[in-house]
């Protein structure tokens, strides 16, 4: 996404949020959006394209599906009459293959909002993510789940 396109999107978003589509307000939105982009220019990578939008959409769809699944899973655990039988917490070290800060942040956020897992800490050399699992049966399955699910999708989006 070029920064000019991003500025236009942010200007329209601003006009929508303030509910005022007059020319002056659009200009003001573009000004604020442009300032934000100038401030963030080092963290926004300039190699996106519209083809990537499909992958972003797929990731978003996967995320919302997993979010609903995780809420239902928590509901099942919380309402279970015998709590000790279903809650088997564990803290597992999950090796990371994504490297950049943005990717790790996105992955950690998504892990927190998906079924049964919560990210606690990242090791200093950024190679291991420590994940708390609400009820873990099999550590290999948990690690494989994260690596094949979100991590693979995030890599597709960023590369």
């Amino acid at each position: 996404m070029s920064s000019a396109f991003l500025t236009v999107v942010l200007a329209i978003l601003w006009a929508g949020i303030t509910n005022n589509f007059s020319g002056l307000n659009l200009l003001f939105g573009a000004l604020i959006g442009g300032m934000a982009i100038v401030m963030l220019r080092y963290s926004i990578r300039q190699r996106g394209s519209l083809r990537k939008a499909a992958k972003v959409l797929a990731l978003t769809a996967l995320f919302f599906r997993e979010l609903m699944a995780s809420a239902l899973r928590v509901a099942y655990v919380v309402l279970h009459p015998n709590l000790k039988a279903v809650v088997k917490p564990a803290i597992v070290a999950v090796p990371l293959t994504v490297k950049s800060d943005a990717e790790i942040t996105l992955l950690a956020n998504m892990i927190t909002l998906t079924p049964g897992t919560l990210s606690i800490d990242v090791s200093k050399d950024r190679s291991v993510l420590y994940v708390h699992a609400l009820s873990m049966e099999d550590d290999k399955a948990l690690i494989a789940d994260i690596a094949n699910g979100f991590e693979a999708r995030i890599k597709e989006v960023f590369n």
Binding site: L67, S70, A71, V78, L83, P89, G116
Partner: peptide, 21 residues
């Protein structure tokens, strides 16, 4: 969940996921 679950980390599962949803 925040009342029933046994420790802080499991409570956090309930608060962050069900709360956000």
């Amino acid at each position: 969940g925040v009342i029933r679950l046994p420790d802080l980390y499991t409570r956090m599962h309930a608060a962050s996921k069900a709360g956000a949803v």
